[in-house]
Design a protein around this nucleic acid. Structure first.
Lengths: 220, 220
DNA sequence: TCGACCATCTTGACGTCGTTAAGTTAGGCG
DNA sequence: CGCCTAACTTAACGACGTCAAGATGGTCGA
């Protein structure tokens, strides 16, 4: 099809142009696009291939299975999430940094709900089968933990051990995103009180800050 | 097969014994059992039917589709969750009640991870298609909101509007269960600190109590 | 310049899946 | 006793994931 185009357009300096151009990336793009439109559950590898303009078996020269392709889409998602968090992690004030991290996290989740579900769904591409996925997630967690340790070092946050409160923070924000996606349409009103995504997020962040600053209430 | 068994065993007083006995419940039981063993993604309706001892098309006389059967399994899960929460909701002390609700919620999630994922996954049986699922979830939320309002009425919890902080509580606990299931094996050690499910839960509950008691830190 | 190599992609096939249509069985009621 | 209808079976359709075998075309040493 693009017989002469490869000569006229030698943009791929390395080895990115194979037979049909960079099929691996094209498949990933197509899969992500189709996931965003129709969800993960109904995704068909054959349609991904058709969408990329190749035959049904072509993807198997770049991915071991449909699950492996989905895992790579999820890995890209984690990379994007880490990029967003990193941008927010430069803020020096601990509370402002934590608020920025939370906002970046929620923004990523609500802007990429399908990919977010794929990343944390564990039904498709489980972390046991694809350990690089777990590693990508841990990288995001490290940014959060660094922010907690930063606040602890300055005496703004309680304690001196960052991993446990970091996990509690992650739980809160992850739960917020999950519930906002699954159960709260943006205009929902409950018992006469409007529940906007913004107010839900403000309440969760208030919980997080209160938890980070406060003393323990329950034993241990 | 059970030609005479129906006569020898007339336990089903109402109309529960059709051709093969109560196939609807048998299918639900088989599906739940198979989901627990192998997850939702790989579940096959044909295997569910075979597991129940009927042909491939038999389920369609009791459920409109595979998704509808899964939705009913999820609905049963919500009923079980509500039962567990209700038992913990009798405690009069607000903080103890909240801790009990959290423990009951986490216990349900960790004891039924596959069904929990189905309930909140939103990939299979979405709430838009099965509104009774949403209703079941709202019933669980009401128990939590009642507990928050109870604490607010006694002046133990901050504020006088229960739905927003209740949502933050739900977020935290839901996120805790999700992350414990997906990313934290029970024996995980992170940066030299052992992260047990119990310590993660204690930290999250401390956050929740602190958030419920404390003043707002961020501007709403 | 040419031929061999090899990664890349296609064709075709297998078994399984969800779902539907048409036929079969058996208990309930006239 | 015979019809009715719900419950179930058999058979089939198209789509799916995946693999084996063959076609294709760029790369590189001779």
């Amino acid at each position: 099809m693009t017989d002469r185009a490869d000569i006229l357009d030698p943009m791929a300096d390395h080895r990115d142009h194979y037979h049909h151009g960079n099929l691996r990336e094209a498949l990933l793009d197509a899969a992500e696009c189709m996931i965003v439109e129709s969800g993960v559950a109904g995704l068909s590898l054959r349609q991904v291939a058709k969408h990329a303009g190749v035959s049904q078996a072509a993807p198997y020269h770049h991915f071991a299975s449909k699950e492996a392709l989905l895992a790579e889409v999820a890995r890209r998602g984690f990379a994007k999430l880490v990029a967003g968090l990193s941008a927010a992690a430069t803020e020096p004030d601990p509370i402002a940094r934590m608020a920025g991290l939370g906002a970046a996290y929620v923004q990523f989740g609500l802007e990429n709900p399908a990919v977010y579900r794929l990343m944390f769904g564990a039904e498709f591409c489980p972390t046991e089968v694809f350990p690089e996925l777990k590693e990508s997630g841990d990288r995001a967690f490290s940014i959060l933990m660094e922010a907690v340790a930063h606040g602890q070092a300055l005496g703004v946050f309680w304690g001196d051990e960052p991993s446990t409160p970091s996990f509690a923070v992650w739980s809160s924000v992850h739960g917020l995103v999950s519930l906002l996606m699954a159960r709260v349409p943006p205009e929902k009103v409950m018992h006469g009180v409007p529940m906007t995504h913004e107010s839900m997020m403000a309440a969760t962040m208030a919980f997080i800050i209160a938890g980070l600053r406060g003393e323990r209430v329950l034993a241990p």
